[in-house]
Design a binder for these strands. Sequence first.
DNA 1: ATATGTGCAAATTCTTTGCATTAGA
DNA 2: TCTAATGCAAAGAATTTGCACATAT
Lengths: 149, 149
Amino acid sequence: MSRHEHPDAQAQFESALQTLRDHQHRITEPRKAILTILTREHGPFTAEELHKQMAKGGCDLVTVYRCLTAMEEINLVRRCDFGDGCYRYEFNTGEHHHHHIICRSCQAVETLDMCVADGLERMARQMGFANVTHTLEIFGVCATCQQKS
Amino acid sequence: MSRHEHPDAQAQFESALQTLRDHQHRITEPRKAILTILTREHGPFTAEELHKQMAKGGCDLVTVYRCLTAMEEINLVRRCDFGDGCYRYEFNTGEHHHHHIICRSCQAVETLDMCVADGLERMARQMGFANVTHTLEIFGVCATCQQKS
DNA sequence: ATATGTGCAAATTCTTTGCATTAGA
DNA sequence: TCTAATGCAAAGAATTTGCACATAT
C-alpha cells in the first residue's frame, strides 16, 4: 500500500484536477477517487483493480472505464498492454518515458526508467510516418520466482 | 495478394509441417491452409482475417483459434498485439527479430527490420530476470494518410 | 439552468470450453 | 485402431452502448 507510494502524489493529484478543468471536464467523485489511487501508487492497474480499490461508496465499474478513457484522451493516464487480455492504466507523469518489466510467473511489475526506442521512432519518421509513438513491454521470470522452481 | 508474397514461402511451409511432426502434431487441412497463408503473406493477421482468407471449404473459426494457439506453443507463429483488442499472428521465420509500424489511420502495417531492445533485455537480466522477451510496436500516421488530411 | 457524467441493464467483441463426431498416423 | 483434431453450440471475460436520472459548473 504505502511501499510504492509516490512522494509528490498530492502535487500530481492537484495538477491532474487542473488538467481536467483545462479540458472542460468536471471534477467528480469517481474521477477524484481514481486519480487518488493512480497518483499514490504506480500501478499500472486494470479497471477492475481500480474499482475494487476504491474507498467506501465507490462507483460503477462502467464509470471507471469511462473515466479512464476520458483521461487517456487528455493524456492524464497512459494505457499499458501486457498482452493478457486486459488493459492497465497508470498516471502519466509526463516525465521521461519509461517501460515495465513483468514477471511471467507472479505478474509483479517493475519500472525500467530507460527507453531505447528513440532510434526506432526516428527511423519511422524517416519512413514518412508522423505522430510516432510506441509501446514496449518486457517479460521475464523474476529472481524470486526462479528460486521457487 | 502477391505483392507481399514471400520468396521462399514453399520452403517455410515444408519446414513448418516438419515442425508439426516433430512435436507429434497432425498435419490437418486447417493447419495446412493457415500455414499456406502465413508463409505466403507477411501479415500479421487476426484469426478472423485468416478464417475469411481460407480457400473453399475452410474450417470453423474456433479451429483457427485452436490451430494458432497450438502453433504458437511450438514457436511456429508469433502473436502480435497492436493494442486494439484482438491478437494478430505471423509466421515465425526464426530469423532476426523484427517489429511493426502501424498506421493509426489506415491500419497498414510495415515491417521494421531492426530491433534496439537488446540493451533493455540485458538490463532486465541484470535486474535478476531470466527468460527475457519483449514486445514492441510502433504507431504513427503514414505518408499517404497525412496527405489526405 | 444545462450540459456533462453516472448507474443500471443489456449488447458487443474476441476468445475459450464442452462434447459428440471425424480423420490423421 | 485409437488418439488427436474438428465442428457446433454455448459460455466467458473485457469492454462498450443506450437511456433515464443525477450533479458539477
